[in-house]
Design a protein around this nucleic acid. Structure first.
Lengths: 244, 244
DNA sequence: CGACATGTTGAACCTCATCAACCGACGTGG
DNA sequence: CCACGTCGGTTGATGAGGTTCAACATGTCG
């Protein structure tokens, strides 16, 4: 089971994401041996703020949200994890955020100490861990720009751009670029709102607005097409992306 | 000159910050040899967004702001660097943010390749690089909570708490904890505003408000005392801190 | 079918941005 | 030495964008 999941890494361009991109076959096999699948129901807590955990994990399917909570209960989503993303922090003390299943979630859990030991024996893997942490840091700062400087419309458009970009990357470049970009809304309005630092009603209104303007078109309840990606990128306050 | 600066690391509890905490004396000496002091005037650009740089650096004195800019010119400060902090990202491609001197700044610059080579030869240093990147990531997420969920008053109070915490840490614990916490406002209102994602006027108003309420008391133009730290922490939307 | 969650839409309110006037400190040049 | 312009900071008035509260629609599951 977990073997099938992990070897999947090798078949997909996704390998350039996450930790496994630099793993030697041997290291990969080693990680494989200490991996255990785990299931979480929607809303279930995976990691609790400031409570040490003895594992790290890889998302196999579903969406995991990372949250920070204020004493009075207000909550900010500080990260969304998609399949193949990494959950938890190796070599850190206790995590300063919670991780919660934003949908039905399948994880592959690895014992932390064991994982760290493998990493210590594989410099390339450690290097990759550093690089992917730097990438997370970049993403966090990009989100700081969004949270601190963008309007509600720009925030929603930016979030949709993120989904489009993900969807295109996930296609692994094996086929021609899709002429009509498509994305899936993987979480509910409340979670989108929590990620963007706005209210759920505002998200709803902005999405309605984008629909009315023909920037996005509904396919089914969770899927949309984007007829003109540059228009969406413009609304997101970004330069039109180059899809190399 | 730079020798005096770097050895200073060894004399101060600050060693637990930044990269040098895990550096062996030999590695430190090695870094020392490739370090060169550099001066920047207020407002001067140190690193430009998306332009590769061939150095990383340590802040010796002054404040460096990390900024991200939108195509239309709006700017968000995504990090403030204080003395002993690290500038730039080793092992990353081009940086996705700019670094600018927010005051007169003294840096010690190190050639990037040379630095990376030293790190590659010192696993402990690389480990420390990873850990301090994880800490930066935590700080960035803490700031996402602030930007996305806090009111203007909470934002300003949080920023002042940050300064107080820094000021206490900087005292290196060698003396008894100061009975009256003191902090210095190291940057102008516009930069505080850019960091907090509010307007400069709002920052000014909130600080005036805190002064009027006696939460903070002016010493001189740039220094304040905090008679009751718990009150400030409360306004910041934080649990009262434990000063272990 | 009813109960409950999720999403949409409307209306009132409120926080904060914006614009503008003003103040004090500082540096420059007459 | 003082007048002046500039810059950073403060304070006030006004308005827009977004939150909040509430009603309603839609979909799902027992």
């Amino acid at each position: 089971m977990q073997h099938a999941d992990l070897t999947h890494f090798e078949n997909c361009a996704i390998r350039h994401r996450g930790l496994c991109s630099a793993a030697s076959p041997e290291a990969l096999a080693e990680l494989n041996r200490i991996a255990h699948p785990h299931h979480y129901a929607t809303g279930q807590t995976i990691i609790s703020e400031d409570v040490p955990v003895d594992f790290i994990a890889n998302v196999v399917s579903g969406i995991v949200k990372l949250t920070k909570t204020m004493p009075d209960g207000r909550q900010q989503i500080v990260g969304l994890l998609f399949p193949f993303d990494f959950v938890g922090q190796a070599f850190a003390g206790s995590t300063s955020f919670s991780a919660e299943a934003a949908s039905e979630v399948e994880l592959v859990r690895l014992n932390r100490k064991a994982f760290e030991a493998v990493v210590d024996r594989n410099p390339d893997l450690k290097q990759q861990l550093l690089v992917s942490t730097l990438n997370e840091l970049d993403a966090a700062r990009e989100w700081m720009l969004l949270l601190g400087s963008k309007s509600a419309e720009e925030k929603v458009a930016s979030f949709l751009m993120l989904l489009v970009r993900r969807s295109i990357n996930m296609s692994c470049g094996q086929e021609a670029q899709p002429v009509n970009p498509v994305f899936e809304l993987p979480v509910n309005r409340a979670d989108i709102a929590g990620y963007l630092g706005v209210s759920a009603e505002t998200v709803s209104r902005q999405i309605s607005h984008l629909k009315a303007d023909g920037i996005i078109k509904l396919i089914d309840i969770r899927h949309y097409t984007v007829p003109d990606l540059n228009r969406l990128a413009g609304l997101a306050g970004q330069e039109p992306p180059i899809w190399a």
